[in-house]
Design a protein around this nucleic acid. Structure first.
Lengths: 244, 244
DNA sequence: GCGCGACAGATTGTATACATGTTGTGCGCA
DNA sequence: TGCGCACAACATGTATACAATCTGTCGCGC
């Protein structure tokens, strides 16, 4: 079996780093399902590293919240049970808003440049309707805002949130109907507004836009979790029922 | 050199687990200073494990925020520079308050029992004026409230905050004058009140007490960072200057 | 005398072999 | 036929040997 090449540009880093990055990406893209076991032997063969560095990678992914480790029972991809969903919706707006505020206060010009580039990649993915790429670039976008915030005490929670948000977002970006496509366009426009607010060091506006962005995302996710009921009158278009 | 035995009861766990727990404890107690390098060979000899599991322990501590890892340059104990202090003070009240609210909402009876036991140990340490034990039991107390909150997205930040709060607290608990001793007694009383509020499922009260607890702690820490100036009139007692 | 480059020691990173523990299977027995 | 125990196959945990990288020092040349 040939090695699974990382889809990103990442050029010439060590095989261990490649493995780390690729596993993160595959988990985010739900290429590896939540709850799946990660077999050390298989993965080490796959990435062409021995088990020793691979296990270190897993330990690290464990620390970042991508996987859960249990003694003598290996690593599993972090699950996304419904009990956690409640926590997710409770916690996300607070952490996102705080991060946006801090990013607007502390951002450096170099970081603005990076953020714009990431957003450009995101827009490209949107144009090409590549769901996985959208979700991944959206992840990078928000992770970069986390970097700007420069708060070592807040970022661990932000990272944990973004993992599951990205995985949930796969469903969002994969959607095909017109309403969803509009929502994605809105989300992209909000990214541009966020860049503006952060670049202009306007914390209040950055928070406002971020919360609007969150509301949009939350609505889409909830719509997915609780999908449109079948129309009571089968002759009526489903869109109407969905609008409730 | 004999093995550094873990001071806690932890009985018969594996040497690797002992190593993990002991390193955490020593970092929290500032027995290993912030910024100190951790030598793999020396530590593996010290704990009687080989470098392989020791490195996994370090990876894990890295994920938890106890140490920072850099490529080909080993592990260092997480530093506590002044740039981060600002973030610490900004972030702590929000995270602590949110955690307290959730703990009051979600706590289970079994967890209440644990919390009371931890608080009992804390009170014992206070009575015996053992600074390191106070700080460690205080850590466990707040970590247990984090468990009660049961929010996987908030707890990473809480854990990161508690690490540095405990390290800063070493100074607090070590203090010797009457004012500080009163503050410690107040802190302990607040713990009892927090248990009450959480047990009674009163989120608002839990938050109020938690914020008061934070304010007390913050004042003590600031007092330490900006110590009392030498009295302009050397004949006057130093306490007066401190009161400003 | 100062700076630069090469070497040596030390430290980290990786691979492989082996030990330990877990899990599934099949046989025997009630 | 159903339950339980033993064993085998497999996966994880650990140790040791080796490779690669970094760091400090010495010596050479400018």
């Amino acid at each position: 079996m040939p090695h699974h090449s990382a889809s990103q540009s990442a050029a010439s880093s060590s095989p261990k780093q490649t493995c780390l990055d690729d596993l993160r990406q595959r988990i985010l893209a739900m290429d590896i399902a939540p709850g799946a076991d990660l077999d050390e032997t298989a993965l080490s063969a796959h990435y062409g590293v021995s088990r020793t560095p691979l296990r270190e990678v897993l330990q690290r992914l464990g620390g970042e919240g991508y996987v859960t480790l249990s003694e003598n029972r290996g690593a599993k991809v972090a699950s996304m049970d419904l009990a956690q969903m409640r926590s997710f919706f409770q916690t996300a707006p607070m952490v996102y808003a705080s991060t946006a505020r801090l990013a607007a206060e502390n951002r450096s010009p170099g970081q603005i440049a990076i953020l714009k580039e990431v957003q450009s990649s995101f827009a490209t993915a949107v144009a090409s309707t590549d769901a996985a790429e959208m979700a991944l670039h959206n992840h990078r976008f928000h992770a970069e805002i986390g970097e700007m915030a420069g708060n070592a005490y807040l970022s661990p929670s932000l990272r944990r949130l973004l993992i599951d948000h990205t995985r949930l977002g796969q469903m969002f970006y994969r959607a095909e109907d017109e309403t969803d496509r509009t929502a994605i366009a809105t989300a992209s426009a909000q990214h541009d507004q966020m860049i503006d607010a952060i670049e202009g060091q306007d914390p209040a506006r950055a928070v406002t836009i971020t919360l609007a962005h969150w509301d949009l995302s939350r609505d889409r996710i909830e719509r997915f979790v609780r999908p449109a009921p079948l129309p009571l009158d089968p002759t009526e278009p489903q869109e109407a029922a969905n609008a409730l």
